[in-house]
Design a protein around this nucleic acid. Structure first.
Length: 547
RNA sequence: GGUCCCGUAGCUCAGUUGGAUAGAGCACAGGUUUCCUAAACCUGGGGCCAUAGGUUCGAAUCCUAUCGGGAUCACCA
């Protein structure tokens, strides 16, 4: 609504002044309330181009602008040339009235052309259990997928994995060693780079119960069936862990199908045909230097096996061919080096690399009482995501894993997460929702119904206005969080919304107010409740009715 | 050594397409309940925005260098 009410008068004013510079008029919400409700630095931006004093330009604009007096209280100049706008109370009541019509759908955007988005996340090979880093990846990916859905995109959630290759053989050998150690030979040697986690022992004991000594010979056939057993076991665990956090993915794409369907060869042929790949030292090299990167890289080893780059490129091509308009990748920082290669490959294949959005998150450290809890692989004492879910529950895990910007190292404070009190930030949001639910419970007991005509103009208390302002920003915060790939933005927004609500609740009686005012405040509470609930839903966190 | 991320209050972090007096939560000190959930609200102290230069009307934000922490740099994935 800002566009029609604010931007248009400004544009008209500029054209009246014969200022034809092509410039986007930026509005922002001033931090300092003395600077009005909305401000723009347009005069300062124009100053350089027009070679005039910013304050003079601002004055000219104000002299010619014709705002809607019902909605805009005043427009004035401040500082070096800021133009500050103050809305009338009616502006806010009108805004709330419009929002109220959305009902439960508040925050959801509709798009005319429904673009298809593929969000790929988690994507852990079935060789082990999920740890905290995977959890961060999963929560970022899932929240981002939710954000895209709320923005009106058609979203597919995808999991990419590879159940072939060295890692899986390694898993099989590790399980086999534990199997023998438990079955008949405690000194059976463990593979040098094997998986040391305790879960391998668990798999082995289950294998013994199921297969007895049937697999005792170390031959190809037995290792294959052990590998399959291990894969199935790990995948079941992974899916179960994700399930506990309400993460459900639509598609599990196996790297193997890129080979079996000939997609790898299609890509190789394309590169060869277009002179973007060449043979050297018995290997096939991709001419990344022709694509703007430093060094060429091997895509098919001299042994005939592809390196990871080739399937990664083929996989992105495959997703584009499936008809997605936008591809989202969520990677941990350890995958950072592969990104330029893949994007260059995608571009060479004729796809727009700008439509591939790669979000890279940094690592997670677990701390307690200021000390870091080691998650060493060598000792095998991995603190898994399941352990964390057992301790603090899915709501806290999901919130903690997205409450920081994705490019910073995330310190997961176990002590704080365990805290079942006001110190724990997730409860602050949930409490606001529970409080709201309780208001509506009480309203029902008193026979107060939210229906009929609501006079939104009655809402003019300072805390009511502040709350309405905050509510108005809900769709914007979803959009920003989505565009920037930063779920944290929504989490921060919700904390501010909850805060605005708590203050309003503290200052204004709702159910005891005179009937018309009661209705208006109840309507405000309703919209707040919807925004908090929808926001929490996007973050994958429950909105309890009672606490 | 090259590349990427980070360095902001005691702690954990926002703010980084350049804008007004640098923010929040926690911690610390104090206050608020005959009243819809006090898991709430209010007040207060707390800063050389890692360091040094530069760009300009204006820099936490952009550029250069340096220091510190992390990641990554294979015919491993």
């Amino acid at each position: 609504m800002y566009n029609d009410i604010i931007k248009l008068p400004f544009q008209k004013s500029l054209s009246k002044l014969n200022i034809n510079e092509i410039i986007d008029i930026n509005f922002e919400f001033p931090k300092n309330p003395e600077h009005g409700d909305l401000s723009t630095n347009i005069a300062m931006q124009l100053a350089g181009k027009l070679k005039k004093q910013p304050r003079q330009i601002a004055q000219d604009i104000i002299d010619t602008i014709e705002p809607d007096k019902e909605l805009i209280d005043k427009i004035d100049i401040a500082g070096g040339g800021f133009i500050n706008i103050k809305f009338t109370k009616k502006f806010y009541s009108l805004a709330l009235k419009n929002i109220y019509k959305f009902g439960d759908e508040f925050g959801k955007s509709k798009r005319e052309n429904e673009l298809k988005v593929n969000v790929e996340y988690v994507s852990v090979n079935p060789t082990g259990l999920l740890h905290l880093g995977h959890g961060r990846n999963a929560c970022i990916g899932d929240t981002l997928a939710n954000l895209y859905e709320w923005m009106g995109y058609k979203v597919t959630r995808e999991y990419y994995f590879n159940n072939a290759g060295n890692q899986m053989n390694n898993l099989a050998k590790s399980i086999y060693a534990r199997y023998r150690q438990q079955l008949d030979n405690p000194d059976y040697p463990f593979p040098e780079n094997g998986y040391h986690g305790d879960y391998i022992k668990e798999i082995a004991s289950e294998l013994i119960i199921e297969q007895k000594e049937n697999l005792i010979l170390e031959n190809e056939e037995n290792l294959t069936s052990i590998r399959k057993y291990g894969e199935k076991w790990c995948f079941a665990k992974i899916k179960n862990t994700l399930e506990r956090m309400s993460i459900h993915q639509d598609l599990y794409y196996n790297e193997d199908s890129l080979y079996s369907d000939g997609k790898i060869n299609e890509v190789i042929d394309f590169f060869k045909k277009n002179k973007l790949a060449y043979e050297k030292d018995g290997a096939l090299w991709l001419s990344l230097s022709k694509m703007g990167l430093e060094d060429d890289r091997v895509i098919v080893k001299s042994t005939g096996e592809p390196t990871y780059r080739l399937p990664d490129i083929a996989y992105h091509r495959e997703k584009f061919l499936r008809g997605y308009d936008i591809l989202i990748d969520i990677f941990g920082s350890d995958h950072i080096a592969t990104v330029p290669d893949v994007l260059a490959g995608v571009k060479a294949l004729g796809f727009n690399p700008d439509m591939v959005k790669v979000y890279i998150h940094q690592f997670v450290t677990l701390t307690e009482n200021g000390e870091q809890i080691k998650m060493s692989k060598r000792t095998g004492k991995n603190y898994t995501l399941d352990d964390l879910l057992d301790e603090v529950g899915p709501d806290v895990v999901r919130f903690f894993l997205i409450m920081r910007g994705i490019s910073t190292h995330l310190e997961f404070d176990l002590g704080l997460a365990r805290e079942q009190s006001e110190k724990n930030p997730v409860f602050y949001l949930q409490y606001a929702h529970a409080r709201l639910c309780s208001i509506f419970d009480n309203a029902e007991l008193k026979g107060i119904k939210l229906s009929g005509k609501i006079d939104f103009n009655l809402l003019e208390h300072e805390t009511e206005i502040r709350l309405i302002k905050q509510i108005m920003n809900f769709p914007g915060s979803i959009e920003t969080a989505c565009n920037k790939g930063e779920p944290q933005i929504l989490a921060d927004y919700l904390r501010e919304l909850a805060s605005a609500f708590h203050v309003f609740y503290h200052e204004c009686r709702i159910l005891d107010a005179e009937a018309d005012l009661c209705s208006a405040r109840l309507a405000l509470a309703k919209v707040t409740q919807i925004a908090i609930k929808n926001g929490l839903t996007i973050l994958g966190i429950t909105a309890p009715a009672r606490m």
